Amino acid sequence: MQNSHSGVNQLGGVFVNGRPLPDSTRQKIVELAHSGARPCDISRILQVSNGCVSKILGRYYETGSIRPRAIGGSKPRVATPEVVSKIAQYKRECPSIFAWEIRDRLLSEGVCTNDNIPSVSSINRVLRNLASEKQQMGADGMYDKLRMLNGQTGSWGTRPGWYPGTSVPGQPTQDGCQQQEGGGENTNSISSNGEDSDEAQMRLQLKRKLQRNRTSFTQEQIEALEKEFERTHYPDVFARERLAAKIDLPEARIQVWFSNRRAKWRREEKLRNQRRQASNTPSHIPISSSFSTSVYQPIPQPTTPVSSFTSGSMLGRTDTALTNTYSALPPMPSFTMANNLPMQPPVPSQTSSYSCMLPTSPSVNGRSYDTYTPPHMQTHMNSQPMGTSGTTSTGLISPGVSVPVQVPGSEPDMSQYWPRLQ
């Protein structure tokens, strides 16, 4: 039975679970980093996980050691009161100082060594604690504590007292930064006198190289990059290397530039699409467009005044059976039934097929058609009795279509119309 579990990581490298990497692998990681390889490249070359490479390099940059820390136990506290007071002093002298600059000053002034120097995250935590204590304490208590930490007896009751030896409130920041720059020169002199001055200088240079600022491109470089971006948004590694040799930039910087440029292009394309949609959409909808001609068919113009009344309900007709019959029939052209047409008796099958359309009241044959006459024609229609054979009435077949029909004066039988409509 094995005491430890061995495995293979996602890159194909072998590791022992819970145990640190061998010293030979750690040394190779540092050597590759000094030669300029990126952590992701080191991870692929040595088949070590990216997190492990970053952790080893980060500890090497901070402490200069590649040895693993002790497994188990607690780390001794490195942010001692003396170190905290120095950090507060540096922050007062130059409020814009960075944590890694404070760390360098602690090393250069001999406050800490490589073994007990606090990390950048520890210094940031100390600065946050100082800021929170400043908010919790009152103004007087804060000034007393700062005077105690600074070891001075001057008056701290006013704002300019934060910067000793100065009279203009805006000047101390520059003086403090100048003092810090002077301390940086002392850093070089002190570290050069040490035993491991060369190694420390190499480590600091490598650290500065990794902690780079934003790349500033010249106009020629920007023009070359934009020209390549117009050709393709995704250049391959050969195109990037050719462009890197042409404009004297690292291939990694060119790759990052193209990634950022593609993101910018997507944002601009989104804005262009929004403007295009806004320009195509009308600002207001016309009133006429809300009524579609496919839904509402136009009603033909009436030929006679009587045809303006298109349904039985508008003429005072309360018989719903006839109203439904007229509205359900398709529109037909106007025609006239003459008196000489043969009077065919209704076929029983045809009569039964339209039995649902006729009223059940037996008085329908005896009703006159003056009910369908509009009010303004009552006088004219009353002067001509319906009993004469020459009287013409208008029957409504569908809305908007008038059918003048000659009705025999002897017997106005409704059943004569249905064979004609089939």
Rank of each mutant, 00 (worst) to 15 (best):
Q2E: 10
Q2P: 12
N3E: 10
N3W: 10
N3Q: 12
S4F: 11
S6F: 04
G7Q: 05
G7W: 15
V8K: 12
V8D: 03
Q10L: 12
Q10S: 09
L11Y: 06
G12T: 02
G12S: 03
G13P: 01
G13D: 03
G13H: 02
V14R: 06
F15Q: 03
V16T: 15
V16G: 06
V16A: 12
N17W: 00
N17I: 00
N17A: 00
R19I: 08
R19M: 05
P20E: 00
L21E: 04
L21H: 05
L21Y: 06
D23G: 13
S24K: 13
S24E: 12
T25Q: 15
T25L: 09
R26C: 01
R26Q: 00
Q27K: 14
Q27L: 07
K28W: 06
K28H: 10
K28M: 07
K28R: 09
I29K: 01
I29S: 02
I29Q: 03
I29W: 00
L32K: 04
L32I: 06
L32R: 03
A33P: 00
A33S: 14
H34S: 14
G36F: 04
A37L: 12
A37R: 11
R38W: 05
R38M: 05
R38F: 03
P39I: 12
P39D: 05
P39K: 13
C40N: 13
C40T: 08
D41F: 08
I42A: 02
I42M: 03
S43V: 05
S43G: 09
S43Y: 01
S43R: 03
R44K: 12
R44C: 06
R44E: 09
I45N: 11
I45P: 01
I45M: 10
L46P: 00
L46E: 02
L46G: 02
Q47G: 05
V48I: 14
V48A: 05
V48G: 01
S49I: 03
S49M: 01
N50F: 07
N50M: 15
N50G: 14
G51A: 04
C52I: 02
C52Q: 01
V53F: 01
V53C: 06
S54Y: 14
S54C: 13
G58I: 14
R59T: 06
R59M: 05
Y60E: 00
Y60H: 04
Y60P: 01
Y61I: 15
Y61L: 14
T63K: 04
T63I: 04
T63W: 03
G64C: 04
G64Q: 05
S65N: 11
S65R: 09
R67T: 12
R67M: 09
P68Q: 01
P68V: 03
R69F: 10
R69P: 03
R69D: 05
R69A: 10
A70L: 13
A70M: 15
A70I: 14
A70P: 07
A70C: 11
I71P: 00
I71H: 07
G72V: 00
G73I: 00
G73F: 00
G73A: 00
G73S: 00
S74V: 00
S74L: 01
S74N: 00
S74G: 00
S74F: 01
S74D: 01
S74I: 00
K75T: 07
K75P: 04
K75A: 07
P76Y: 04
P76D: 00
P76I: 06
P76W: 03
R77Q: 04
R77L: 04
V78H: 02
V78L: 03
V78D: 02
A79G: 08
A79V: 06
T80F: 06
P81V: 12
P81C: 10
E82C: 13
E82K: 06
E82H: 12
V83Q: 01
V83G: 03
V83R: 08
S85C: 13
S85H: 13
K86E: 15
K86Q: 15
K86C: 07
I87P: 01
I87M: 15
I87A: 15
I87C: 15
I87T: 10
A88S: 13
Y90C: 10
K91I: 05
K91V: 03
E93Y: 14
P95M: 15
P95C: 15
P95H: 14
S96V: 15
S96C: 08
I97E: 06
I97Q: 08
I97V: 05
F98D: 02
F98S: 06
F98W: 09
W100H: 13
W100I: 06
W100C: 07
E101T: 13
E101Q: 04
E101G: 15
I102R: 01
I102A: 01
R105E: 15
R105F: 12
R105L: 11
L107G: 09
L107Y: 07
L107D: 10
S108F: 10
S108E: 14
E109R: 09
E109S: 11
E109V: 12
E109H: 14
E109N: 10
V111A: 14
C112W: 06
C112S: 15
T113P: 14
T113M: 14
N114C: 14
D115F: 12
N116C: 14
N116Y: 12
I117C: 08
I117A: 09
I117W: 06
P118K: 01
S122M: 04
S122R: 02
S122P: 01
I123G: 01
I123V: 06
N124W: 00
N124H: 03
V126Q: 05
V126P: 00
L127V: 10
R128Q: 15
R128C: 00
R128I: 04
A131L: 11
A131R: 05
A131T: 09
S132V: 08
S132Q: 09
S132I: 11
E133Q: 07
E133K: 08
Q135D: 13
Q136H: 13
Q136F: 08
G138Y: 10
G138I: 09
G138E: 15
A139E: 13
A139D: 12
A139M: 11
D140R: 11
G141W: 12
M142D: 14
M142F: 07
M142A: 10
Y143H: 11
Y143T: 07
K145P: 08
K145F: 08
L146E: 14
R147K: 14
R147D: 12
R147T: 08
M148F: 07
M148S: 10
N150W: 15
